[in-house]
Simulated scan of single mutants.
Amino acid sequence: MKMLWKKIIGSKSNKKTSPKISTEELKWQIALENSHVGVWDWDSRTDKVFYSKESKQILGYDDHELTNSAMEWNRRVHPEDKETYFKDFNLHINGKLDTYRNEHRILCKDGKYKWILDKGKVVDRDKNGKPIRIIGTHTDITYRKKRDEQSEKNLQLITSQNKRLHNFTHIVSHNLKTHIGNFKNILEFYDEAESEIEKQELITHLNTISEALTSTIVDLDDIISIKSKSNTNELNERVNIFNCAEKVIDSLEIESANNEVALFNSIRKDDYLVANRSYLESVIYNLISNGIKYKHPNRKSKVILQTMHTKDALKILVSDNGIGIDIDKFKNQIFEMYQTFHGTNRDDSRGVGLYITKTQVEALGGTIEVESELNVGTTFILQFKKIKHSM
């Protein structure tokens, strides 16, 4: 088999002078060509490498465009992969590995990288055991790598969703059990009540518990509705962020005026998102409302909206100069359900708004973070994948 490979490689690298190859050898050559697997043959004495036309085609080059130099391949290996690339090869030629095998990214003619499975084996050594000749193959595994990466992302997503579902189920169970327990207790007291006044008071308590239960069910229904839409086309609308924010600011005009909070829309007018308009409006509304609700009592209050760009992402920043949050104390609770952390004991602080906001942002394919300092202010940072303006 070793000699057969040598003849096939030799016949392809020196077609003018090589003798005719046998039918069996021709079968192997055709099989290699049809499999789109590249072949390489390294001679350590001359440091020359023969690359088959299939190897060159993987990189997008014609047969005549690459020379028989080891550097032709080595210099194209991705910088992050070079260390293991050379390490695996050296382990094999030094006899520490029976075969050479490495997966690395390689720079192609079009400027993009492909993933390559690179295999090889020493087929000839000198009398001192030093490798003279190594023959190997190149296989394009880009599709498999992308599939594996997507599978890993899907696994992480499913794991994250399962964790959130577990937490959500716990929240539902806890809150419903609490309301049901309160109903049960009030009804028992009602049966034991001896006067109409007592019964009337208990009925009032029942109404309060009923309102709380209704509010809880509405909150949970909103969250379920958001999660059920997260993978549907209802989220795929091209939305102008400035106009969306302007609409929300207009709707909060009276509230901001009554609370003497100035609202500034500094979002670039040509910034867009592929999103659900209602969700984006809800997110912006909740964050501005928080800035109004938790304003600082001893200074002129303001909420500023702006956008920032990175290479691949668009960020929406909603900043206020309000009372702020103790991040060190509440970092892991800010976006949890039924958590309040401003220390104001307000009746309208139910600890649901930021949980719903986070759920909506994630449904839009984004992330939300918060930076805050007590008595200085808070900035919420929404990050989304950037879209092309030509859409």
Rank of each mutant, 00 (worst) to 15 (best):
83 E>D: 15
74 N>V: 09
141 I>W: 09
91 L>F: 11
156 Q>W: 01
130 K>R: 14
71 M>D: 10
77 V>Y: 00
82 K>G: 01
91 L>M: 14
117 L>N: 10
134 I>Q: 01
122 V>A: 09
72 E>T: 05
116 I>L: 05
124 D>C: 08
138 H>R: 00
105 R>S: 05
139 T>M: 15
158 I>T: 03
70 A>S: 13
151 S>Y: 01
157 L>D: 03
89 F>T: 10
93 I>V: 15
147 R>Y: 07
135 I>L: 09
77 V>K: 03
76 R>E: 08
146 K>R: 10
162 N>A: 07
127 K>T: 06
77 V>Q: 04
94 N>D: 15
121 K>T: 13
76 R>Y: 06
106 I>T: 06
98 D>G: 13
73 W>V: 13
134 I>Y: 01
128 N>S: 12
163 K>S: 13
154 N>R: 03
75 R>N: 02
78 H>Q: 05
149 E>A: 04
77 V>P: 03
135 I>Y: 07
152 E>K: 03
142 T>A: 10
87 K>C: 11
124 D>H: 11
154 N>P: 00
125 R>W: 09
126 D>N: 13
151 S>Q: 04
86 F>T: 12
100 Y>T: 07
87 K>H: 11
146 K>P: 01
164 R>F: 12
116 I>K: 01
122 V>N: 02
73 W>N: 02
95 G>T: 09
103 E>V: 12
83 E>F: 14
102 N>T: 14
146 K>Q: 10
165 L>N: 10
97 L>H: 12
81 D>Q: 05
87 K>A: 11
76 R>Q: 10
96 K>H: 15
118 D>Y: 04
107 L>T: 04
99 T>Q: 14
89 F>K: 07
130 K>I: 13
122 V>H: 00
164 R>C: 04
130 K>Q: 05
